[in-house]
């Protein structure tokens, strides 16, 4: 399944519209993401950026428009949805680790039950991932026993355990204490350098400047400006972009 042609975008959104009741939250959003591209999405709160990336793995449902992930169209077909979800990993602002399971169990549960891996294989891979995010020694602790930064790194490992092609990050560091933000951002940087396609909603401008291939600004439900980090930080053009950046930098 999927398209390996490196000229084809891996995510393609055309004229996506979404309403919450009567409220028009996403207005004619058009976006294409190339494989291995890192796209950072910024914007004021309520602008629809979180809603947008949640539409991509169907945590929210769009009413108009097309979303195509790796050649599969996101529709009401449950098979498509399942296929798309298996290619996308997501990291949440509130970590959402399963508190009644150990770290090891958190990471290996989905590979065992959804990808049907034998337990030993799943646990070996889990340990490797935990090492990759820097906390292999915490494998047998419970989430409640870890710090915020450690928990979020476990969440990243858990998402990676499903071997996704795309990783979505919904404000991954917003709930962390300042001294723990860096360890999570470092993991995300390493991930980007290893070639993962990433969509990151964040307020961390330093990360955006360093790592992003492209920055997208959302405001009031539509994409207002899109471009390279240099373009954004040195030569923003749209009024709203200038306003937003002046408030945040």
């Amino acid at each position: 399944m999927g398209n390996d042609n490196s000229n084809e975008p891996i995510i393609s959104c055309r004229d996506v519209n979404k309403w919450f009741g009567n409220f028009h939250v996403l207005k004619d959003v058009n976006l294409e993401v190339q494989p291995q591209e890192v796209v950072v999405i910024i914007g004021p709160s309520g602008s629809g950026k979180s809603t947008f990336i949640r539409c991509i793995n169907r945590l929210e449902e769009h009413q108009e428009g097309q979303i195509i992930v790796d050649g599969i169209e996101l529709s009401h077909d449950v098979r498509n949805i399942a296929a798309i979800r298996s290619e996308i990993g997501m990291v949440f602002q509130q970590f959402n680790l399963f508190p009644h399971l150990t770290v090891m169990q958190n990471v290996s549960l989905a590979p065992r039950y959804v990808r049907r891996q034998p337990r030993r294989n799943a646990e070996e891979s889990a340990l490797q991932l935990l090492a990759r995010v820097g906390i292999p020694e915490q494998a047998h602790k419970y989430p409640g026993q870890l710090s915020g930064g450690q928990q979020q790194r476990v969440a990243i490992a858990r998402a990676l355990a499903m071997q996704p092609k795309i990783m979505l990050f919904d404000e991954p560091t917003s709930a962390l204490d300042p001294e723990m933000i860096k360890e999570v951002l470092d993991v995300m940087k390493e991930l980007a350098q290893s070639g993962m396609t990433m969509l990151v909603v964040t307020h961390e401008m330093g990360f955006a400047r360093e790592v992003a291939d492209r920055i997208v600004l959302f405001d009031e439900g539509r994409i207002v400006e899109m471009g390279t980090p240099e373009h954004f930080f040195t030569n923003p053009q749209h009024e709203r972009t200038k306003l937003f950046l002046s408030q945040i930098l």
């Binding site: 190339q34 591209e37 890192v38 350098q193 291939d213 492209r214 471009g227 373009h231």
Partner: peptide, 9 residues
């Protein structure tokens, strides 16, 4: 990261 330069919009 990909090595391509994206267009500006």
């Amino acid at each position: 990261m990909s090595g391509r330069t994206p267009e500006i919009y």
